[in-house]
Amino acid sequence: MDKIVMKDLSLFYGEKKIIDNINLNIPEKKITAIIGPSGCGKTSLLRCINRLNDLIPDAKIEGQLLFNEKDINTDDVDVVEIRKKIGMIFQKPNPFPKSIFENVAFGLRIEGIRDKRKISEIVEKSLRDSDLWGEVKFQLNGSALELSGGQQQRLCIARTLAIEPEVILMDEPCSALDPTSMLKIEELMKELKEQYTILLVTHNMQQASRVSDFTGFLYMGKIIEFGDTNQIFTRPKEKLTDDYISGRFA
């Protein structure tokens, strides 16, 4: 089943067309990677999906964006509910300057959950699921800002898992991390796809080929090619894709 379907989706910032008529299906419980050079619109595309582009005053989205077969690109959709179901991991780890525990509990608290035991249980489970529990279990009340970059990013993942989303958007989640931390997060992604649909945006082609099931090549706001990751990286159909993945790209 396709979790997210984009039909003729376009995004404008003012007059400028950032995303140009994209048609794309994101399958459920798989990792789909979007690759492409900087400035091709990858991040903007991701931010359409959880409606974070709403924050930009002159952003305008046209076309359909189906989530569980329902169009979420309409004015009457409750964006708060959408964002609870579609979590997001940012390029730069952005833990809140609170304790590790409070970071993970944040989504639960704004949900109005007061039950301390329930909160503790969910926090522990989320930290376990993000492979961070063993490293932080004795310092849950310590500041999240004291963690390393890789740990911070896994904390942000834990924070997102705590509210049990269906989809996780990842915006170059490893670009600010060292290689070891990156591999850890990649391992984590593979574990997470058992339960979650992951849409990964990256300019790191090796990463896309290592972790994703499907890959789309985005160039100047257009999807040039989309398909099975293996096929995209070994037998691309489009010349542009071939040029990009083989590094012959100006």
Partner: peptide
């Protein structure tokens, strides 16, 4: 206050 804090909270479904 960094924009990250706002977006991080909004992305978690905060109003």
């Amino acid at each position: 206050v960094p924009q990250d804090y706002r977006e991080g909270a909004l992305a978690l479904g905060a109003t």
